[in-house]
């Protein structure tokens, strides 16, 4: 879901970079040198997850896990995803310098939104509720991310309407897969390491 360099228009690039910078401010305020190693682990897990492909019928898709990052890191998702995307841009040329702002916004804003919507559910005792919370976090995060990607293309020019629509539609199966996997992950974490779900950045 990275948008390549040179595609988007200047107003889209500039405004989303500005929102990303302002999103990073509360995130950085919550980060200190004690919780940073934990945040870095989630950044790298986000990075690694995007390298792992899961099968879907005849093809395969790669995970994004920004919903999971969101419910665990909250506002710290902005800096955490920013550095992961920067590393991807430098190592593999996925995304790039000028699109760093918009790509971070498209991943991190949904993460923060699902943090507010679903992280209370993850603290419930019932396993079913925890699964539902995780599923919704994964599903809604990808839903919003692909919507934002489609919108950033659409705001660049109406000519991208078809491309934007195509990107959104192809992500619908990804939403379900992310939902299911995030759901199982939070149930597992709840059992094995509940401290992680209590929020490691306070």
């Amino acid at each position: 879901m990275h948008i390549a360099e040179g595609v988007l228009s200047a107003p889209v690039l500039i405004s989303s970079a500005a929102i990303t910078v302002s999103g990073c401010i509360p995130g950085l305020r919550k980060l200190d040198y004690n919780n940073m190693p934990r945040v870095a682990v989630f950044s790298s897990a986000f990075f690694v997850a995007s390298l792992i492909h899961v099968p879907l019928g005849p093809t395969s898709v790669h995970l994004l896990l920004n919903g999971l990052t969101g419910v665990i890191l909250g506002w710290a998702s902005f800096p955490a995803l920013l550095v992961a995307l920067f590393l991807q841009a430098v190592l593999f040329q996925f995304g790039g310098i000028t699109t760093l702002g918009v790509n971070t916004l498209n991943m991190a804003l949904p993460a923060v939104i699902v943090f507010y919507l679903f992280s209370p559910l993850l603290k419930k005792k019932s396993k079913v509720l925890v699964f539902i919370g995780g599923f919704s976090a994964g599903f809604v995060a990808i839903f919003l991310s692909s919507l934002l990607v489609a919108l950033s293309l659409f705001f660049t020019g109406k000519v991208f309407l078809n491309a934007a629509r195509f990107i959104f539609l192809t992500h619908i199966p990804v939403m379900f897969i992310e939902g299911v996997i995030t759901g199982f992950i939070v149930v597992f974490l709840r059992k094995v390491k509940p401290a992680l779900l209590e929020g490691i950045v306070k």
């Binding site: 790298s44 897990a45 299911v180 996997i181 094995v192």
Partner: peptide
């Protein structure tokens, strides 16, 4: 498959977290 996969990732998180 997806369940196994999710558990693999979750184990990955826990191990990496402890290591960090």
């Amino acid at each position: 498959s997806y369940k196994t996969y999710a558990y693999v990732l979750a184990t990955l998180f826990v191990r990496s977290y402890n290591r960090a």
